[in-house]
Nucleic acid binder design. Structure first.
Length: 922
RNA sequence: GGGUCCGUGGUCUAGUCGGUUAUGACGUGGCCUUUACAAGGCCGAGGUCGGUGGUUCGAAUCCGCCCGGACCCA
């Protein structure tokens, strides 16, 4: 904050009349700076404790989860620019945070920066023009932190400029040593709980990134390729006799895997090829002889119906390899280069080898046909390169054995929208791999383990020492505890970034391990005695996890798994899943399509509050398009709010008068409508139904308050003060400003401040006041509604007769129930004499039809409804007192129908009908 | 190939455990300088609820099929 900036609190209070138009540009940034400087959104972890210092209650409010609302925010990658998705997502979170800050005691709304990933590694290399390989890991991470810090500052400013009410004292960075400690503690804890293992097994491998990846990181991609029909020679009989020179055909898209071929499979139902089963085939060019085996997993529809199994071309190959105990022939190495198993082709890349092998197969007459083929391949989501399946040694978190438990954990959370649970469910149901958490990257959070150079026994770091880097730190023991060998080699691998990202609830709650101080720490046996604790246990489990639907399988699922294993509890009460922002043609915004709209461009043209109004405009979970028109609607609302507030300010005294003993009917009506709005909007906020809350609130403000009530109030107050009206105006105004505050934080704060409503909260901010509750006003709502209909009928009368709306009307007769509203109608519509009658007016009526209430008639008359309908249609009915008799056959009670009448008014003046009243202007 | 979700005036959207007249906003046509607001007020036009078949007295709503779209998993 600059010192030339006057703190808003120094501005002249009460008598400073609102003037002119609302100018968001200056006002919005003024408040953004103010909120940050004043820590308006600080998590008040201790306040409840202090306020209860009288010790009257036994339980510390700090432990009372009901008064605190905690949100586990998604840490964005800092190297990326702020995009509309961020704006949308942050704003939705902020609606929740602001609502609960007012409705509950205090809100924990932290902010994280995800800088522990490949993105920030690459950013650092680019910025500093260095290579991470040239540095020790810890040193390089130090540089990452420095480079990221600049970007984080920028990001922080961007987020603050959206008025996201984050507690800026509670931020974290995933690369920070504290977080690395949590990540490594998690690893050790899961290892001790027997949930982790290290295994040499087939792994999903990205040959471009040269690392193992997990199932969640691979995705589908359709690719065009060639299907090659290759002849295999038979060298031994199967179940049936073969002729001496018999061959069969294998169709494959991956001929470079021929050297890795270990068997051929036939479907048990494949009658044509059944005689081959049990026989032996020779692989062309490479010459290895492989068994021919029957297995149901063969897809008879693809290619020749015969398929080769290579170690490993796809996941099926792995299953066959394990099920039939096949040989292992690894023809491709970590960098997608052919190995010595590939003989002459050794050293070629897989793509080079594919071409060369096809050429040679063709040359030797083994290639029967090569045709175009479209198929789906698995690629690494980060780089788009086709994955391979390699046998490597990796660390895994066991998950497959607890699929049911994790599914149950998902069910324990409340999902908004509910349907998003099915994504979680399907992901778990389709899980086929345990979670591979080791990555062969140079940078990342190190796996804190060493291995005995002799027997391979893993030696875990000690919890008290974390974070460690085995590459530069010494192991906790001098020799192998298993065999006594004195050489220990450090683990070089690092964690999958999701292994850390999945710990955000624990990071936020201050999860840590503390040595048991009573234990003799000098004794190495007891050095591990201690316990896991949380600095802020009241936060956990978190009330809300907000996130996008695209990372339900990545972030949410892994977080549930990890936190559940560590704490035995599901980490979240509620999950709010937001959709994606699309462009105005409903297409995803992407750099490649060139349809990205940066928030900065939007905010140059529109106030932040208008952008927030737009963000509140859709059902949670739905993707939704960016439309400039919606922001214009928000902008108009701001102007209307400003102007209406200006009028309220002009009409009322500086301070709200005490509630009068007797409120007039109009005032009670407005306050009762306000009560209904408060209840309804509150319920919508509780359900994360922002769009409905927004629209209902807007409708109350614009239609009920401005169009109806304010028009009446200004006439009533034109003759002088009236405590009932003044009280009502100010009560309603303050209440709906609060209701608007989560959506429109700037303008509501400005009005709250300018109109000096601020005495209620310590810091004068509307955002720390209490959320409104209904006042329990009772009113004749029907009379109010009828009165509003009459007003609108009179407006219509004036419009249709070309009269200005403030034209005087001499005499109006109202036939209908408008008790208590007579004067209000007359004043608002400039009526000199207004007479009301409860009974029907002196008019001639003619029955023009019958209106059936089908919801009652249907169940009662069932299939006779058709006959009744046609009876009424043809006029074959009579009204017998209160009953309706149709076609001399069906008798309908008074609740089942309404008589439709055409009224003709023969008296003096003009008649207008509304739903509940008849209005005659004379 | 399997699954989930979705399709409502020109645009976005409410309504969806069935009840006949489908909500609102934006846009659009007309009228009104009304002393908070013309970025306003009032009045209109505009939809056979993707198509089709069925269940039912009655379907935007339930069921089948088809078309179109999004996403997830092979």
């Amino acid at each position: 904050m600059s010192d030339t900036q006057d703190p808003p609190t120094d501005e002249p209070p009460a008598d400073d009349q609102l003037t002119g138009e609302y100018d968001p540009a200056d006002i919005e940034s003024k408040w953004q700076d103010h909120w940050v400087a004043e820590d308006t959104y600080a998590y008040d972890g201790d306040s409840a404790e202090q306020s209860s210092a009288d010790q009257s209650s036994g339980q510390s409010p700090r432990d009372d989860a009901d008064t605190r609302f905690s949100i586990d925010t998604p840490p964005p990658t800092v190297s990326g620019n702020l995009h509309m998705g961020h704006l949308y997502q942050f704003t939705l979170q902020d609606f929740v945070a602001r609502y609960h800050r007012m409705a509950d005691d205090t809100v924990y709304f932290p902010f994280g920066y995800d800088d522990n990933g490949i993105a920030s590694e690459r950013l650092t290399e680019r910025e500093l023009d260095i290579r991470h390989q040239d540095f020790e890991r810890r040193e390089f991470q130090e540089k990452c932190r420095e480079v990221c810090a600049t970007y984080e500052d920028e990001f922080t400013e961007d987020v603050q400029s959206l008025a996201i009410s984050v507690d800026w004292d509670n931020t974290y960075k995933t690369i920070a040593p504290e977080v690395q400690r949590v990540s490594q503690l998690s690893f050790l804890d899961l290892y001790e709980k027997g949930r982790e293992y290290r295994q040499r097994a087939p792994t999903i491998w990205c040959p471009d990134c040269e690392t193992a990846i997990s199932q969640v990181e691979q995705e589908d991609e359709d690719k065009a390729t060639k299907f090659n029909d290759i002849a295999f020679d038979l060298v031994a009989d199967g179940d049936g006799p073969i002729t001496w020179d018999e061959t069969f055909t294998i169709s494959t898209t991956r001929p470079e895997l021929l050297p890795a071929c270990v068997s051929v499979f036939v479907h048990p139902d494949d009658d044509e090829n059944q005689h081959l089963v049990g026989g032996t085939a020779r692989v062309p060019l490479f010459g290895q002889e492989v068994p021919i085996i029957a297995d149901e997993r063969v897809d008879m529809e693809t290619g020749s119906g015969l398929v080769m199994c290579c170690t490993f071309g796809d996941q099926n190959d792995i299953e066959w390899y394990q099920a039939h105990d096949l040989d292992l022939r690894l023809a491709i190495d970590e960098s997608a280069t052919m190995t010595e198993v590939a003989g002459d082709y050794e050293g070629l890349s897989t793509t080079e080898a594919r071409e060369a092998i096809i050429e040679d197969l063709d040359g030797e007459g083994y290639l029967l046909e090569s045709r175009d083929h479209d198929h789906t391949v698995q690629v690494h989501e980060r780089c788009g390169v086709e994955v391979e399946y390699l046998v490597t040694e990796q660390w895994y978190i066991e998950m497959l054995d607890k699929k049911d438990e994790y599914l149950e954990a998902g069910r324990e959370m409340d999902w908004f929208p509910e349907k998003m649970f099915s994504r979680y469910q399907h992901w778990i149901e389709g899980l086929e791999w345990d979670w591979c958490i080791s990555r062969q990257r140079d940078s990342g959070i190190p796996i804190p383990v060493w291995y005995c150079a002799d027997c391979g026994e893993p030696v875990m770091a000690e919890k008290a020492d974390l974070p460690v880097d085995p590459l530069s730190d010494d192991p906790p023991v001098d020799s192998c505890p298993e065999c006594g060998h004195d050489e220990l080699t450090p683990e070089e691998d690092v964690f999958d970034t999701w292994a850390t990202s999945s710990l955000t609830p624990l990071v936020n709650a201050g999860w840590d391990w503390h040595a048991d101080e009573s234990a003799d720490t000098a004794d190495s046996v007891d050095a591990e005695a201690g316990e896991f604790t949380m600095d802020n246990p009241e936060l956990y489990p978190f009330d809300l996890r907000p996130q996008g639907h695209d990372i339900i399988s990545f972030w949410l699922f892994h977080t549930v798994v990890k936190c559940y294993e560590h704490t035995g509890e599901v980490p979240f009460e509620n999950v709010m899943v937001n959709g994606m922002v699309l462009d105005e043609n409903r297409e995803a915004m992407s750099k490649s399509k060139g349809n990205v709209i940066p928030p900065s461009e939007v905010l140059e043209n529109f106030p932040v509050d208008a952008a927030r109004y737009w963000a509140a405009g859709t059902s949670i979970g739905d993707d939704f398009p960016y439309k400039e028109g919606d922001l214009e609607a928000g902008e108009r609302l701001l102007q209307k709010l400003w102007n209406a507030s200006r009028l309220v300010d002009q009409l009322t005294p500086a301070t709200r008068p005490a509630e009068p003993e007797e409120l007039s009917a109009v005032d009670r009506w407005l306050l009762a409508e306000l009560d209904a709005t408060v209840d309804s909007v509150t319920a919508k906020f509780e359900d994360y139904a922002f769009s409905k809350a927004r629209n209902e609130l807007r409708s109350f403000f614009w239609n009920t308050f401005c169009d109806d009530y304010l028009e009446i109030a200004k006439q009533r107050l034109s003759d002088g003060g009236d405590a009932s009206t003044e009280y009502t105006l100010l009560t309603a105004h303050q209440t709906f400003l609060k209701l608007f505050a989560p959506f429109l934080p700037h303008i509501t704060e400005e009005l709250w401040d300018r109109l000096a409503y601020g005495a209620e909260s310590d810091d004068g901010s509307i955002h720390t006041t209490d959320w409104p509750v209904a006042g329990g006003y009772e009113a004749d709502l029907a009379a109010g509604e009828t009165a509003m209909e009459v007003v609108s009928a009179l407006r219509r009368y004036k419009t249709e007769n070309g009269l200005p709306l403030n034209a005087d009307v001499e005499h109006v007769e109202v036939y209908g129930h408008v008790d208590g509203f007579e004067a209000a109608i007359a004043e608002a519509m400039h009526v000199e004499t207004l007479d009301t009658y409860e009974d029907a007016p002196d008019i001639t009526t003619e029955v023009s039809g019958i209106d059936l209430d089908y919801s009652v008639v249907g169940p009662e008359f069932g299939s006779d409804v058709g006959a009744i309908d046609s009876g009424i249609e043809s006029g074959d009915y009579e009204i017998d007192g209160e009953r309706l008799v149709v076609a001399d056959e069906f008798e309908l009670g008074p609740d089942l129908f309404e008589v439709e009448e055409t009224r003709t008014y023969s008296g003096e003046g003009e008649m207008t009908e509304t739903e509940r009243a008849v209005v005659v202007v004379r």
